[in-house]
Write a protein that binds this DNA or RNA. Structure first.
Lengths: 230, 230
DNA sequence: CGGCTGATTGAATCAGATCAACTGCTGTGG
DNA sequence: CCACAGCAGTTGATCTGATTCAATCAGCCG
């Protein structure tokens, strides 16, 4: 990971969702703190168990957060794109990263060192509130994820995910940002199973798959699958 | 749920982990805010989807947080005992509860209304920091839980859980605080499976089970099971 | 002594993982 | 420009951990 020549500006900071609500002064402070870095595709940003000296935010590209089992299997916890922060739990825990982070594409990120950020936050209730909102949102996501993983079968998880993409991309013709193999890991399964279920949903006329494009043909029935499984 | 006659005191507030690090003044403010309630065994504190007007802390007894699937299956996300706060995400999200809460035993709790607490926190960086630490810890727990649920089989999850109880209770002769059926839900499985695996671990001489008491006979091999499954 | 609730055991079944083979596709170098 | 390496995705056959259904059992309490 190399230090990029660009100097972070208050404007760049505003692009980070977490900080977009803050005032000019705070953003300037943060810009002074932020260290820009660029990472190649496949490069590790940090590894599970690494001492957490600070957290990151994606400026460009995408980064996946994943856990690896001794067996070699992996589970993708998150995929973060531009504007999203990751590794922030480290700042308050002062412990080690509980998962690993790896760039999926050539990316650039900001790094916020623990000590400096902690100093800012301990004097600025607005910034603290903003972090609280972030963590709360993450917590909520995890609750939903645990629910899905334990209470629902793979077709339901896939259907739910497709519907989520639909509302995010605001169209019935989805473009998968992630390779299918990564998507399988995210859904807590393996590529073979994902492939079969995509095929099954196609046969049933709920969706149409063509490479990285998935068209939702019958959103209602897809919603049923997401609820009750298939 | 009935209003208990006791008036919350700053001392009672100090018993809540989340607030134990705070100063006298903050605790007095919180005491003024807190509404004591008592709940019977089996009574619902709140239901998934309820408007979240505030959060709770357990004073006495225990409360489980769980998600229910349309199929009727449930998954226990947490069990909270005295001193622990729950439902706090609601305070920052201002949305609905993502899961339900039910008393496992006759319990008493404090209720902290959203508006008042939000006011306190937005002016007090220490309190905010304390909340940040809480949420970070929760997040970390969830990451571990997701890892276990997706990457490990039931024996591994059970073994990990027993080892966790061991370090919490600081003895090799564990007392299960939860009925086995609830423990099964917490481990993301069903009572039958839990029963079988406990039996298997007993046969192999790793543990000894007798009612609500589980003795760990071979912690090393149990740790292996937790890592690699069986 | 019933009768309820939790726990256990057995048998059948199934969703999903694994293993293995095969099909593209894409880029690279001779 | 073609060949071939390499990787993502698909498909088929098989295996197995875990759930489900059902019956039985153990405690505990009124």
């Amino acid at each position: 990971m190399s230090i990029s020549p660009t100097t972070p500006t208050a404007t760049a900071i505003a692009e980070i969702d977490l900080f977009s609500g803050l005032g000019e002064r705070e953003r300037t402070d943060l810009a002074r703190l932020a260290v820009p870095r660029s990472v190649e595709k496949g490069e590790l940003v940090f590894l599970e168990g690494d001492e957490a000296e600070g957290f990151y935010a994606v400026v460009e590209g995408s980064v996946r957060i994943y856990k690896a089992a001794p067996s070699g299997r992996e589970h993708v916890l998150h995929v973060f794109g531009p504007g999203e922060a990751f590794g922030e739990v480290a700042v308050f825990e002062g412990k080690r990263f509980p998962a690993s982070a790896q760039a999926l594409t050539p990316s650039s990120v900001f790094y916020f060192p623990r000590a400096g950020f902690h100093r800012l936050i301990s004097t600025d209730p607005d910034l603290a509130l903003s972090m609280l909102a972030l963590l709360s949102g993450r917590l909520r996501q995890f609750v939903r994820k645990i629910e899905e993983l334990t209470l629902k079968d793979v077709p339901a998880r896939l259907a739910a995910h497709l519907l989520l993409l639909r509302s995010a991309q605001n169209t019935d013709t989805l473009t998968l940002d992630l390779p299918k193999s990564q998507m399988a890991l995210y859904l807590g399964t393996v590529p073979e199973t994902l492939s079969r279920i995509l095929a099954k949903l196609s046969e049933s006329g709920l969706i149409e798959v063509s490479g990285k494009t998935v068209s939702i043909l019958d959103a209602d029935r897809l919603a049923e699958v997401a609820e009750e499984g298939l």
